[in-house]
Computed example of a mutant assay.
Amino acid sequence: MQLDAAAWLVETALALRVFGPDVIRGGRRLLTAGVRFGITQLTGARTPARTNEPQQEAS
């Protein structure tokens, strides 16, 4: 039984070591996106919509 617990502990530590930085980086990106979205909603600012039509030059 003790060997199984030790093996589980080593596997868990290895998984945290391997995938931990990616999980933290992904969490930070999600938080950053949420902050940007929240600021846009609070200020009421809207980004201009993209159009597929070419802009006509004023003559």
Rank of each mutant, 00 (worst) to 15 (best):
T40Y: 05
G38W: 03
F19D: 00
A49F: 01
R25E: 01
P54D: 07
P48S: 10
A45S: 09
V18L: 11
A45D: 07
R28G: 01
G27D: 03
T51L: 12
S59A: 08
L42E: 08
G44L: 02
V23T: 09
G38R: 08
G26L: 02
F37R: 13
L31E: 03
R29E: 09
L14H: 06
Q55F: 08
E57T: 10
L30Q: 09
M1A: 06
T12V: 06
P21G: 02
A49V: 05
I39H: 11
G27T: 06
L9M: 09
L3Y: 04
Q55S: 11
M1L: 13
T32V: 14
E53R: 15
A13Q: 14
G44S: 10
V10H: 04
N52D: 08
W8T: 00
N52Y: 13
A15T: 05
A7P: 00
E11K: 13
L30D: 07
L14I: 03
P21C: 00
L14F: 05
L31N: 04
T47I: 12
G26D: 06
V35W: 02
P48N: 08
M1Q: 05
L9D: 03
I24A: 08
T51K: 15
L3P: 00
L14S: 05
R17K: 08
L16Y: 14
N52S: 10
V23C: 04
D4S: 13
T12L: 06
Q41H: 13
Q2T: 08
T12W: 02
N52Q: 11
L3W: 08
A7M: 14
Q55R: 15
L14T: 04
Q41M: 14
L16V: 08
L42T: 09
V35C: 02
D4L: 12
A13S: 09
R17D: 02
Q2G: 13
R36I: 15
A49T: 05
L31R: 13
I39M: 12
T47P: 00
L31A: 11
Q56S: 09
D22V: 02
G26M: 03
L14Y: 03
L3T: 12
V35N: 04
A7R: 15
I24Q: 07
I24L: 11
P54G: 05
I39Q: 08
Q55L: 09
W8A: 05
L3D: 13
D22N: 01
A13E: 03
A15F: 14
A15Y: 15
R17V: 02
V10P: 00
Q41W: 14
R29K: 15
L3S: 13
Q41E: 07
E11A: 13
S59W: 01
V10A: 12
A15R: 14
R36T: 15
M1R: 11
E53Y: 09
S59I: 07
T32M: 07
T43L: 10
L30F: 08
L9S: 06
R28Y: 01
L16D: 06
T32S: 10
A6G: 03
R36S: 11
D4T: 04
L31G: 06
A49C: 04
M1V: 11
Q55G: 03
R46N: 07
G34I: 00
P48K: 15
D22L: 07
